[in-house]
Design a protein around this nucleic acid. Structure first.
Lengths: 173, 173
DNA sequence: CGATATACGTCAGTGATGTTGACATATCTC
DNA sequence: GAGATATGTCAACATCACTGACGTATATCG
């Protein structure tokens, strides 16, 4: 707070700021998943089902391997929730055309409706956070938040996340 | 993308932006908790233990009730992990002075050392995210990220989060 | 003082989500 | 045809959350 580390140098970042952000990320995530969690409970689904629905909805035609890569869980864990979703008609599988070993995943009409509803509440919260930041100049808030969150991701993973997100269907909810 | 919703009006926020942020928050949180998770595994502890350690470390003297309020879990869930941490000497309890029913929580020397180490890796990631945002003007990145995350929190909860964080011991890693 | 409320601890059972390890099947590639 | 790859599945287990019930110590209030 003095001497060598003057505001002019500003070597890295002040510690109290990063400490705040660590906790804010905890609280933000807690509330961010809270809304969908409550909605899913009515269907007997949990957060794991939500994650699968989310990515299948936004990236139709995803393979099992790609989904495993995104979620970073084992195929046994994925299979349990995926089975639920397929059996109850929220997700459908189609055999890959070029590679018949692959199972391409798609949301059914029902699945798409449910997922759109879940996405709506999350987008609402994020949109509000962007539009009405609690203590900030409004200009560049999108880019700042996006840049911050992207920078939070494992560097070697960023390219994968970016190329994944470039594939996302954008004309949806 | 045309007609009524022109860039000039820019009614709320573009949907593709908020959609990106929804996913980025998932990825960011995934990697954010990944580092400590791996470290805790060596001690036989999990994420729940980390959360307790974190808040007790940064807010020494916290009561059980306050911790339950922060973590938003049941006392049975808290008790399981808290018992582990107390039995293994990472956290100590002291009877409240003004109210002898309360058990005030503190980190032991060992607990403080471990928690400081966990905090270090998380702060490192956040500091890097702030200092080297992936695609942003560097100015105001702290405030933007902080404002964004605060805005992500349930509005009625924000005052509680703010007053909690105002209590945090700041002369620590 | 005695009733009631509060802070905390604990027992018992359950469910969701993750793990490891092993093995089976279909399909592709060479 | 041999071996790699994509997927499915069985079994056992750990973590972390939940509900419901009950017990004890202490505080507060009439």
């Amino acid at each position: 707070m003095d001497a060598l580390a003057s505001p002019q140098n500003a070597p890295v970042v002040e510690e109290s700021v990063t400490n705040d952000l660590v906790e804010l990320l905890f609280f933000a995530y807690r509330d961010f998943v809270g809304d969908p969690d409550r909605m899913l409970a009515d269907y007997g689904f949990g957060r794991a089902h939500h994650r699968v629905l989310h990515f299948v909805y936004h990236y139709p035609g995803l393979t099992i391997a790609e989904l495993l890569d995104i979620l970073q869980i084992t195929k046994q864990s994925l299979n349990r929730v995926l089975k639920d979703l397929i059996e109850q008609g929220y997700i459908v599988q189609k055999t890959g055309k070029s590679d018949r070993r692959q199972r391409l995943l798609f949301c059914s009409k029902t699945g798409a409706t449910l997922t759109a509803e879940l996405t709506r509440v999350q987008v609402r919260r994020v949109a509000r956070a962007i539009a009405d930041p609690v203590a900030d100049e409004p200009k560049g808030a999108h880019a700042a938040a996006q840049g911050f969150l992207m920078a939070m991701i494992e560097p070697e993973e960023r390219a994968a996340v970016r190329s994944l997100m470039a594939r996302r269907i954008r004309d949806r909810s």
